[in-house]
Design a protein around this nucleic acid. Sequence first.
DNA 1: CCCCACTACTCTGTGATACCGTATAGTGGT
DNA 2: ACCACTATACGGTATCACAGAGTAGTGGGG
Lengths: 108, 108
Amino acid sequence: MDDLTEMLKGTLEGCVLEIIGSEEIYGYAITRRLNELGFVDVIEGTVYTILLRLEKNGLVQVTKRPSEVGPPRKFYALNDAGRAELATFWAKWEYISSRINKLREGGE
Amino acid sequence: MDDLTEMLKGTLEGCVLEIIGSEEIYGYAITRRLNELGFVDVIEGTVYTILLRLEKNGLVQVTKRPSEVGPPRKFYALNDAGRAELATFWAKWEYISSRINKLREGGE
DNA sequence: CCCCACTACTCTGTGATACCGTATAGTGGT
DNA sequence: ACCACTATACGGTATCACAGAGTAGTGGGG
């Protein structure tokens, strides 16, 4: 599948929120998880900008822990604001995807 | 539904392509059509930037016709490249939406 | 007759976002 | 000593939806 970056705008952040919501996890592993899930071209740099944004917006709790195989990891978990944002994301997704699918089937 | 603009990036152009593909239509009417379809906050300026882009990328055929109620209208129709782009758009949409829905239901 | 509403198109600028390239740092294998 | 893998960080770029304002054209009410 060729370039999906434009279509991912606005949705990738929600995907990261969902992943963080299901388990406490660190940036590098989030990238691998996204790649496994089919978002094959998403790279570390992209995920880190999203994580920085989530932290800046107060949606996550961050915990630094040492690793046995490399530099220390920053583990992310959702706080209440993050869970609320995730719920909003899914509501928007539901809204938009239903409208687009309706348009696809001939509108109205 | 609050601000959807970020999530519409990359998809709104596809929606416009789909509308143009189903009938020869002009910019102002495309905006009204989108509003009817639930994309309520989409305004003229947004649609015109998309139309200019489509024209610049050679995806549409443009025909200017006089109107009885205002300035002349620019009617848009898909050419072969436009139809190919529309097919690509739906393939991408299918790919991404299926992955996101899978993620929502617990991944893997 | 003039103002206003509605239709219709155009242009410039802005903010948000994903991505690229690169750098830095830590561990382990050869 | 070198390389691969893990892990985080940062500056710059392209693209996109949108805001805001302006320009035209037609018709109706005061």
